[in-house]
Amino acid sequence: MIQSSSLGTVCAGERTGRTCGDAMKCQQCDNPAVFHITELEAGNVREVHLCEEHARVYLNQSEGGDGGDPGEPGAVEGKGQKGGGLSGPLGVGQTAEDLAVLDKRCCDMCGITFFEFRNQGRLGCPHDYLQFEKELDPLIANIHGATEHTGRRPSRPVPAGVDAGSGTDGLTTIIGLRRGMKEAISREDYESAKEARDAIRGIEDAWTPPAAKAGEENA
């Protein structure tokens, strides 16, 4: 039985230290393996190396409830059980089609797809917590047994006019603006690039803490 959620799985995979550039072949075909997944099963560690296409099939099979392990048949007990892998913690639809749609969803700010997050175990930017809130909610509940922060909070208030309920997300929008600015420059749309740059400056100025401003003035 898989003890960890897939999140735990891919986090552990990260710890193997492999990067996506390693010259290793997919276990299912001759394409390069770009996903290195470490499964934790009842305390045992097993590694799976797959190309993007087979990684998608592998993860969908493990989550969709139709079983099977392309790497080592029979090695993963409980893979085919309903609720195994990510489907339980994620609380998403059980069909491969639903997952395929979810996997393609991407963050408006940093552009990471949900599929990339599932495989790397790392989010792309702070906005992902809002963008993928519905999907992360059961996953985080599974990890921590809670979904509400009760600890310390920043003492400094958000800038005037910003909805405090969204935390620092207003500042995080800079990530999306920077991407937009780069894209505008690459298509030589300098007017849009300038608008983005001005918007970034405005947000940065509003959010720069007084202590940092004082430091810059003294410098």
């Binding site: 990471i112 790392r122 989010l123 792309g124 930017c125 702070p126 990530i175 940065e204 959010w207």
Partner: peptide, 8 residues
Amino acid sequence: AQFPFVSR
């Protein structure tokens, strides 16, 4: 808050 996480 204003930068992507390190891996991204």
